[in-house]
């Protein structure tokens, strides 16, 4: 007897059905936020928002708009459930997630509503796999109250340049310090590690800098361990927007282009580590 307590009856009354011709358009973006097991899925007619949190200090959201899906039918205004993201990703890549051109895995994702498992139908080359993942009680995500009116400083960078910096960051440093300022050094990433300190300065007129809107000098530190998962999103993205609000909360928004050239967003919010005297 399977231990499942969640029945899968009532095929006719799915509250959510979403289909994708290429499952990678979903799995890739979920990988960018896969740093904890539990992920909260919230579906609205606009699309799917997946939230992962860590230590009440970090929150990552992936947005997959309904247009990305070939079919996106939702019976209610909002459908929420929580699943184990690692399990979900294992299922989504059950065919190995091949990158051979022309070979894609198609997905049909169905959900019956509260108390039912999440059902996945995956098909590749005529072979169909059905996966049922038990859903969990959805937890309320933290509201970081990060709103654009409170944003003090904002820069938009080409991801390439930030990727280079992140790949070189001294991981022996406990924190990453971000300085944003209307004057020099404009945008600075600093680490303080075993071998000394390092600074990466981006001038505001760099051709990597798409937008530079800094009103006030702000220096904040963020735990390196918290920011590390965001490098997965950085790796996928083509542009990144870095914003801080008046309290030093950090928002990183990544613009990700999928295999079909469509755009999705991944967003990370991070609490500042400690207050640093403003210069």
């Amino acid at each position: 007897m399977p231990l499942s307590t969640q029945s899968d009856q009532g095929d006719g009354q799915y509250v959510l059905v979403a289909s994708l011709d290429n499952v990678r358009n979903l799995s890739n973006i979920l990988k960018a936020i896969a740093f904890k097991d539990h992920a909260l899925f919230n579906a609205t007619p606009n699309g799917l928002k997946v939230t992962v949190e860590d230590s009440k200090c970090l929150q990552a959201n992936a947005f997959i708009q309904s247009e990305i899906f070939q079919e996106f039918t939702i019976q209610e205004d909002s459908v929420s459930f929580q699943v184990n993201l690692t399990v979900l990703l294992d299922c989504l890549t059950i065919f190995g997630g091949s990158t051979v051109p022309g070979v894609t895995t198609a997905l049909r994702l169905c959900y019956n509503g509260y108390g039912y498992p999440l059902k996945l139908f995956l098909e590749e080359g005529g072979v169909v796999t059905v996966c049922k993942i038990n859903t969990q009680e959805p937890e309320e995500p933290i509201d970081f109250e990060f709103c654009s009116t409170n944003v003090t400083n904002k820069v938009i960078l080409q991801s390439d340049s930030l990727r280079e910096a992140f790949s070189e960051l001294d991981m022996t440093s406990e924190v990453l310090q971000i300085t944003m300022s209307p004057s020099q050094p404009y945008f600075r990433l600093s680490t303080f590690g075993n071998s000394g300190n390092a600074h990466y300065d981006y001038p505001k007129d760099s051709d990597m800098m798409e937008l530079f809107q800094c009103t006030k000098t702000q220096t904040n530190r963020y735990k390196m361990s918290l920011l590390k998962p965001s490098t997965k999103a950085l790796a996928l993205s083509c542009k990144v927007s870095v914003r801080t609000d008046s309290q030093g909360f950090l928002s990183l928004q990544y613009l990700v282009r999928n295999d079909d050239g469509q755009i999705c967003f991944v967003e990370y919010y991070c609490c500042p580590d400690e207050d640093v005297e403003e210069e």
Partner: peptide, 9 residues
């Protein structure tokens, strides 16, 4: 691109 990396060792 004007990126300046400073390492104080």
């Amino acid at each position: 691109h004007g990126l300046l990396k400073t390492h104080n060792l």
